[in-house]
Design a protein around this nucleic acid. Structure first.
Length: 303
DNA sequence: CAGTCGTGGTT
DNA sequence: TAACCAAGACT
């Protein structure tokens, strides 16, 4: 026997794998981007949409996009403004612009196929550390540490014994995630999806369902008596009255209009002229809005 | 590294 | 009801 009798009471890193993956086999949601027919492009589209937007709101828009633009080249052939319009009310519409840009880069540089290489993925607009790892892992079955907010919370609790992870991803978290990663690609990919799902369904931020957790007996946070988060409040951003709200209102007008709109129509969305102007300038700078020679406005490239 | 960037459901 | 939260990226 490999007598790995440790003197500590810490579980072996691999002790978490089987219960979490078995739980995933039983409880994984049947999401469209997890089905084989989704392909790498489906996975990539879903990852963009899921950046800061809940699954339930993504589902219908995802279906629309994949039906309308089944391949990256299909999206790349459209005006960027069409992507912004089809983004609907998912929020953070710059993601639509970036996804359109990623599709164009894939069409031009990668022969129309979502690249498999992690470094090439990272080079695409809108693809950061998380999304590159997620696409490589979920679409191509590669072995990557996939650190999203769910996984970070699961690790913070189960391993580090904290209620919440740090505000920003730390080097220590990356190191831990790599240490916990199963050796073979297939299991690692499964592990990534399973830990994410566990965080989304059981080990939730507000009120975790520890009764249904497959690793509750191994959880360091539970073992410590579920201590409350220490330190300053983790976030706090009001939305009402911010430039973001004004930008949202402006863009909503343009999204819903097939035709270019007059400046007056945009001015009607907000009372404060200064903030209005600042928001519109920001949208123009970001490339989310286009100003025509006649002074009207529209989503970029739309007729 | 902290600020910015949408939107809507839940507590 | 105000605050929190949701598969982040970018500057």
């Amino acid at each position: 026997m490999t007598a790995t009798s440790t003197t500590t009471r810490e579980a072996e890193p691999t002790a978490l794998h089987t219960p979490v993956i078995d739980w995933f086999d039983q409880h994984a949601r049947d999401l469209p981007w997890r089905r084989p027919e989704a392909g790498a492009w489906g996975v990539m589209v879903s990852e963009f949409m899921l950046q800061q937007t809940p699954v339930n709101r993504v589902l219908p828009v995802y279906e629309e996009w994949l039906t309308r633009w089944p391949r990256p080249a299909d999206l790349a052939a459209e005006a960027a403004g069409e992507a912004v319009r089809a983004w609907g009310r998912l929020g953070y519409p710059r993601r639509a612009l970036r996804l359109h840009g990623a599709a164009a880069a894939i069409a031009e540089r990668h022969g129309g196929d979502v690249p498999k290489d992690h470094h090439q993925l990272l080079a695409l607009p809108g693809v950061g550390e998380y999304t590159a790892a997620a696409v490589a892992s979920f679409a191509y079955g590669q072995r990557h540490a996939v650190l999203d907010t769910n996984v970070r919370r699961v690790f913070a609790r189960a391993v580090s014994g904290s209620q919440y992870p740090p505000n920003a991803t730390t080097a220590a978290e990356r190191k831990l995630a790599r240490m916990l990663l199963p050796e073979d690609d297939t299991t690692a990919s499964r592990w990534a999806a399973a830990t994410m799902e566990l965080g989304a369904l059981v080990c939730t931020a507000r009120t975790p369902s520890c009764g249904g957790c497959p690793i509750v007996d191994l959880c360091a946070w539970r073992g410590a008596g579920s201590p409350a988060h220490e330190g300053p409040p983790r976030r706090g951003q009001t939305y009402a009255g911010t430039d973001r709200q004004v930008r949202g209102k402006l863009l909503a007008v343009l999204r819903e209009s097939t035709r270019p709109v007059e400046r007056a129509a945009l001015d009607a969305v907000w009372h404060d002229p200064e903030q209005r102007s600042r928001a519109l300038t920001g949208l123009l700078t970001d490339g989310l809005v286009e100003r025509l020679p006649d002074g009207r406005y529209r989503l970029p490239g739309t007729d």
